[in-house]
Computed example of a mutant assay.
Amino acid sequence: MHMQPSSDGRLLADVSTTWARVAAFSSAVDANLDRWLADTYRVGLTEFRALTFVSHASDKELRVNDLAQRVGLNQSSATRLVSRLEAKGYVRRDLCEDDGRGVYAVITEQGEALVHDARSPYEERITELLTATSVHFPNMDTPQLGRALREIGALLAP
């Protein structure tokens, strides 16, 4: 692997290659979680993450704009996401009193129940995927992935 000096003189692997490994692993974990959530709770990963964000909000509601940013969607996709969640009974829409154009996603009791019921099994599933990486993702080189994660972490450190 090509090594290059960092600004502080340390040698780093090619950052794009390192990032590609981390991104591929993240995508594989997300795909696995998405299938597991769909099979177990009939909700997708993005839907579950959205419900979790709304559930943790102070008033149990988030502007759709804010929700879009938190789950990594554009405004249009977030609006469709809220529509799907509303159709399933997990959220309801509410208009912003100060700005009639602002729309909030407000979690329902059914949505809260789903987040509550799925939270521990979801955390256990993530832990299983991360601690048994070679079992769940046999095509990934676990030691190489560990190095890639440490290298990316070193770039993030202040």
Rank of each mutant, 00 (worst) to 15 (best):
D34P: 12
A154V: 10
A13E: 06
L67R: 04
S134I: 13
N32Y: 14
V71I: 09
L11I: 13
W36N: 05
N65R: 13
S83W: 04
A132D: 06
N32T: 06
Y90R: 10
A24V: 07
Q144H: 06
H56W: 10
A132S: 14
T17I: 09
R101G: 01
S120W: 09
E128R: 09
F25N: 04
L37F: 10
K88W: 02
L45K: 07
V135K: 15
R70C: 06
D34R: 14
S83M: 11
P121N: 03
M3V: 08
R70K: 15
H56Q: 12
V54E: 03
E97W: 03
S120N: 01
F53S: 00
N74A: 10
G89M: 02
V115P: 02
L73S: 03
R80Q: 07
A28K: 07
N32A: 14
T131K: 13
L155P: 04
T131I: 09
P143A: 08
R92I: 11
H136N: 04
R70Y: 05
R70G: 06
L67F: 02
R125N: 07
R147F: 11
W19T: 11
K60H: 14
Y90H: 11
G9M: 00
V15E: 14
A50N: 04
V54Y: 00
R21Q: 11
T46A: 08
S6M: 13
V15M: 12
W19N: 08
F137R: 06
N74R: 00
N32M: 00
L11C: 09
S120K: 04
P158R: 15
L155G: 03
R92N: 04
R150L: 14
A31W: 02
A13H: 15
H116N: 10
V91F: 00
A68N: 00
V115R: 08
H2V: 14
V115T: 01
T46D: 08
L145I: 06
G72T: 01
G153R: 01
L155S: 05
Q110D: 10
P158F: 09
R92M: 08
H116A: 13
W36K: 04
H2A: 13
R147L: 08
T133A: 15
V29R: 15
R42M: 04
F48E: 06
R150Y: 01
R21W: 03
L11T: 05
R63K: 12
K88H: 09
S77A: 13
A132W: 08
D34E: 07
Q75R: 12
R150C: 08
Y90L: 10
L62R: 12
L67S: 03
S77V: 01
